Computed example of a mutant assay.
Amino acid sequence: MRLILIIMKDTNMKHLLFAALCTGLLATTVQAEERPDHFEGEAADTLTEAVSQFSDTNHQLAVLLAQEELSNADLGTVHRLSYTLENALAKFDEELDAMAVDLEEVHLGSESAERERVRNHGAAYLEAAQTLVP
């Protein structure tokens, strides 16, 4: 930077360049301080995994929140846990959509007396439903 300032003859240009560099450094520092590291969280490939992770991670979160004080380390742990919970909820959303489709097929099949349709979609619906509520 010193070489650039020496080469530049215009004093106003030096001040502008210096201000721009300082602003860039300040913005980078502020962004780094405001934005914690991001995590992927535990993936939930199946509804069973999502339910298990949801239960376990909610328990961990409850333990942390029950403390009288939350340290910065605790907040970091909460942040990390939130990613796993978001993944579990995303899997729930996906699976609930599939359950709704199966249930609608059961409904329509029952109206039109399509026994095989009712059995197939009913079995798929119940399998997922029993994962959520045994």
Rank of each mutant, 00 (worst) to 15 (best):
36 P>R: 10
129 A>W: 03
99 M>H: 05
123 A>N: 13
43 A>D: 07
56 D>H: 08
17 L>N: 02
98 A>M: 10
60 Q>I: 12
104 E>C: 03
15 H>E: 13
27 A>R: 05
91 K>R: 04
54 F>L: 02
112 S>M: 13
61 L>I: 14
19 A>F: 13
41 G>N: 13
83 Y>A: 07
109 G>R: 00
22 C>R: 15
64 L>V: 05
15 H>M: 15
45 D>M: 14
83 Y>C: 04
98 A>G: 07
59 H>A: 08
114 E>I: 03
75 L>E: 07
95 E>F: 01
24 G>S: 08
90 A>F: 04
112 S>W: 06
42 E>F: 14
89 L>I: 07
94 E>Q: 15
98 A>D: 14
15 H>L: 15
91 K>E: 01
118 V>I: 05
36 P>I: 11
55 S>I: 10
90 A>W: 02
57 T>W: 06
81 L>D: 14
83 Y>L: 06
107 H>N: 10
124 A>R: 15
98 A>W: 02
57 T>V: 10
118 V>T: 02
58 N>H: 08
101 V>D: 05
42 E>A: 15
75 L>Y: 01
120 N>Y: 02
64 L>P: 00
31 Q>V: 00
53 Q>C: 04
35 R>Y: 14
37 D>T: 09
54 F>E: 12
14 K>V: 00
18 F>A: 14
111 E>V: 06
86 E>L: 03
40 E>S: 11
16 L>D: 05
91 K>D: 00
57 T>A: 07
78 V>G: 03
14 K>R: 08
67 Q>L: 07
89 L>H: 11
52 S>E: 11
61 L>G: 07
26 L>T: 15
101 V>K: 06
25 L>M: 12
29 T>R: 11
47 L>Q: 07
115 R>N: 14
61 L>Y: 02
90 A>D: 09
85 L>H: 02
17 L>H: 06
128 A>P: 03
108 L>D: 00
66 A>M: 06
91 K>H: 00
105 E>C: 01
70 L>R: 07
122 G>P: 07
40 E>T: 11
101 V>M: 04
99 M>F: 06
18 F>C: 12
127 E>C: 05
105 E>H: 01
115 R>T: 15
99 M>Q: 09
13 M>N: 09
111 E>R: 09
104 E>V: 06
110 S>C: 07
43 A>H: 09
97 D>F: 10
126 L>V: 13
55 S>Q: 12
26 L>H: 12
12 N>E: 14
57 T>L: 04
100 A>I: 04
9 K>L: 14
62 A>R: 08
91 K>C: 00
49 E>M: 12
120 N>R: 08
38 H>T: 11
15 H>G: 10
77 T>S: 08
100 A>M: 08
13 M>W: 06
105 E>K: 08
42 E>Q: 15
119 R>V: 03
125 Y>D: 00
74 D>T: 01
56 D>K: 10
91 K>P: 00
97 D>E: 12
65 L>D: 06
21 L>P: 00
65 L>R: 07
98 A>F: 04
44 A>K: 04
96 L>T: 12
73 A>C: 13
48 T>Q: 08
54 F>A: 08
53 Q>P: 01
10 D>A: 07
75 L>D: 03
24 G>F: 07
30 V>M: 09
94 E>S: 15
94 E>T: 13
121 H>Q: 13
76 G>C: 08
87 N>W: 03
